[in-house]
Design a protein around this nucleic acid. Structure first.
Lengths: 187, 187
DNA sequence: CAAGTATGAATGAAAG
DNA sequence: CTTTCATTCATACTTG
């Protein structure tokens, strides 16, 4: 997890100057076309060849490389999926919903992509690799919040966190190690 | 560095009026809990499941969404690291070390893992999801872009685009008509 | 009111 | 594909 080795990528081709803007940003026309491909045409998995072609066309609207197109699609896919995962309980918008109990299942999600791991065929030799199913069981459910009771603290000072950072600052420590599995939580 | 107690005090229930204030701001209790998790418990990398759980509990103290929690952790981590990086100015004064004598790794092509050609095993069963037309047994300049063009107008210069600047995007506005999703952005 | 800063949000780029 | 890092934009709030 400690992969601190990122910083600024060592540009090897068209670097400009250390500190300048190296990061590609889609120009409005490029964005429009990319979105059109993704949403309108349903292009979620462009092949390398297609990436090249897309990139070629987009070059008319500004500098762009293959990897930019590649990342763009990859990021969009990843984030759409991430939303599906996180927005299991999207706010209903307007009404504050403190609905505890019942883990979602009320649908409540936009109509985004739905074809998940439908990708098969990795082995060119003919052997299809396993395709990621989705049989995830309760991963752990570690009691992040053993019980409801933050109210006892909830009335602390509000604006006095003087000093920057907390490196060394002794804050109140949450007593989160109470019962072992109790969690008479929601439900 | 100096956080001038700028957390908006007292929000309690719902500070989000439709249209006026869209940006989430943690309520004091929420902040306290988040900080407690981060600093006291060392929760720097909450999984999506944990994010959901945290969010669920924080909802008792005001509206909050999963992505708020996600961004909160993300930003805190990023900024702490950023602070540390800022500190690495070597005030040696005079002895500016421009050591380039690395072991021949000078080029360092940033060729990332462009695994473009690594997964071209599709077609073994012909179940690609590219739902454009029928199947294609030979990928070769397939008309991703139905010949028209954006190029006939915007065809200015494809290779030596001035770089990131690209000046204004005041190109033609007769692009593909395949967009119907709010590209409203940037502008 | 302008400038400065803290921070939520967005996204390109990588690493795993 | 999944998760994290890094940079940047947007905006709330503070201060001079």
């Amino acid at each position: 997890m400690e992969q601190q080795t990122q910083q600024q990528i060592e540009d090897g081709g068209n670097n400009q100057a250390a500190g300048t803007n190296n990061r590609w940003a889609p120009t409005p026309p490029q964005l429009r076309i990319l979105k059109g491909l993704y949403y309108d045409k349903g292009f979620k998995y462009p092949t390398p060849e297609q990436i090249q072609e897309i990139c070629l066309h987009l070059k008319q609207y500004g500098q762009i490389e293959d990897k930019n197109v590649f990342f763009w699609f990859q990021n969009l896919k990843a984030r759409e999926r991430q939303k599906l995962k996180e927005f299991r309980n999207v706010p209903v918008g307007g009404s504050l919903d403190l609905n505890f109990g019942s883990t979602g299942s009320t649908s409540t999600d936009r109509s985004i992509d739905l074809n998940f791991g439908l990708r098969v065929g990795y082995g060119v030799d003919g052997s299809i690799m396993e395709q990621r199913g989705e049989y995830h069981q309760e991963i752990e459910t570690l009691p992040l919040f053993p019980m409801h009771g933050e109210d006892i603290f909830g009335n602390m000072n509000t604006t006095s966190e003087g000093g920057s950072g907390y490196g060394g600052d002794s804050r109140i420590s949450l007593e989160l190690s109470l019962n072992s599995y109790g969690d008479a939580d929601i439900a």
